[in-house]
């Protein structure tokens, strides 16, 4: 069975550029709109890149700012200064 990595954001002005970045960086992403929130699903893994978010908001962005708009997620977390990754694979 394919394992689905998933991340849910609040549907707010602050989260929208992050959602756009995730859409651009993760081919095959599936989007589920709910009232107030957006759930993004993808087989195996989802990555969020600092650079892609910064391009969209025009300022420095620390991936830990995700904490302000995150609702839920599924997958193992790996976090560093440039990326935030959720995945089910084991390197």
């Amino acid at each position: 069975m394919v394992q689905i990595a998933s991340i849910t954001f609040q549907n707010t002005d602050e989260a929208r550029p992050i959602i756009e970045a995730v859409k651009a960086d993760n081919p095959g992403l599936r989007v589920m709109d709910m009232p107030g929130a957006v759930k993004l699903d993808r087989d195996d893994s989802i990555v969020i890149r600092r650079e892609s978010v910064e391009e969209r908001i025009g300022r420095d962005w620390d991936p830990q700012e995700l904490h302000l708009v995150l609702v839920s997620m599924a997958g193992n977390v790996d976090e560093d200064d440039d990326t935030f990754t959720l995945s089910w694979s084991h390197a």
């Binding site: 009232p35 929130a37 708009v69 839920s72």
Partner: peptide, 27 residues
């Protein structure tokens, strides 16, 4: 998630906001 999304859908701005604020700790 369904509770807060339900609050959003039913016009309860206050509950949506505390719900999602709490939920942001949940991850």
């Amino acid at each position: 998630v369904p509770f807060m999304s339900g609050a959003a859908y039913n016009g309860d701005m206050a509950t949506v906001t505390f719900g999602f604020s709490a939920q942001s700790d949940e991850s």
